[in-house]
């Protein structure tokens, strides 16, 4: 939520409390009224299903009746989730981390150029960054499968140059990470761009004026000033990437499955898989929450916490 709030207020100067709050007690209910629609929406479509999912994650199966459950407090589902599917958890976090890293490496120069170098081409570039959202996520990933396919241009060129040891790009972890990087790149570019764009150019010039050369100014002034954007971008990339299953499904193989794939198959393909799928979902959520908490604590600015 905080990360999104950062992107949202990129243009403005942040919320300012209304000054006349105190003098006009009749208006005290206004904030609550404003919160009501969103609050109701979240209650019905987020909190209620979450509670339900949690109860499902603790259910037990009727012995001999696959697909039938009774209410229980069965922590065994969590144990199974963690022991049987540890590799998928590991891959989810690793692939998401790699994708976040590559997205950052690609996005920062792009956002930097958009904010400082391209002048009036800025809007064209912004549209170009957002344009992929106009087509479906699934379709774009399918397109990537064709681009990376053995007979496709990338793999055949690399093969002709004998640069591809396994002979394939698809059905490897590299393809999954590439797909994740591509799909979540805009979520990295936009917050970084927003934070660079609103940075005061005079402050960056002050770095030069105070004996810092171009690179030192970047390292000691520009980069720290864009830290809120980097933080928001990494969260917006890492969190959905860790839960993603489409890329692993379309670009990967059995040995590149992520937690998302397991949850999906437990829910839809395995008879009696509901409780374990729910337990997997909760475990993933808890893991991500814990990691994000530590990360934000470590690198966060006051603005985000």
């Amino acid at each position: 939520m905080t990360a999104l709030a950062h992107v949202g207020q990129a243009g403005g100067g942040g919320p300012t409390p209304p000054a006349d709050d105190q003098e006009r007690p009749g208006r005290r209910w206004v904030p609550y009224l404003l919160l009501l629609p969103g609050g109701l929406w979240l209650l019905v479509f987020f909190v209620v299903p979450l509670v339900q999912l949690f109860t499902v994650s603790l259910q037990s199966q009727f012995p001999g009746y696959p697909g039938y459950y009774y209410r229980d407090v069965n922590a065994g589902n969590y144990l199974r989730a963690l022991t049987d599917f540890a590799p998928q958890f590991g891959r989810s976090l690793l692939f998401a981390a790699l994708a976040t890293f590559f997205a950052f490496v690609l996005a920062y120069p792009l956002a930097y150029a958009m904010a400082f170098k391209v002048g009036r081409w800025r809007n064209v570039m912004l549209i170009a960054v957002i344009a992929p959202f106009f087509t479906s996520f699934i379709l774009r990933t399918v397109a990537w499968r064709q681009i990376l396919a053995d007979e496709g241009p990338v793999a055949s060129t690399l093969n002709a140059l004998h640069l591809l040891p396994g002979g394939h790009i698809t059905e490897t972890w590299a393809a999954v990470v590439a797909g994740l990087t591509y799909n979540f790149l805009p979520f990295m570019v936009l917050p970084i761009y927003a934070s660079l764009e609103r940075a005061d150019h005079r402050v960056i010039e002050a770095g030069g004026d105070l004996y810092a050369n171009g690179f030192t100014t970047f390292r000691t002034v520009t980069l720290p000033m864009s830290a809120p954007g980097v933080l928001a971008g990494t969260l917006l990339t890492f969190i959905p990437a860790a839960g993603d299953y489409v890329n692993a499904d379309l670009l990967g193989a059995d040995d590149t499955k992520m937690v998302g794939n397991v949850i999906e198959s437990q829910f839809f393909k395995v008879l009696g898989g509901f409780p374990v799928a729910a337990a997997l979902s909760f475990t993933l959520m808890a893991l991500i929450l814990a990691m994000v908490f530590v990360y934000v604590r470590r690198f966060g600015t006051e603005e985000l916490l």
Binding site: D200, R202, V203, E205, A206, D209, P224, M225, A227, T301
Partner: peptide, 11 residues
Amino acid sequence: TVFQSYALFPH
């Protein structure tokens, strides 16, 4: 330079 807008490093 002492800049017209101060330009202190905010971080």
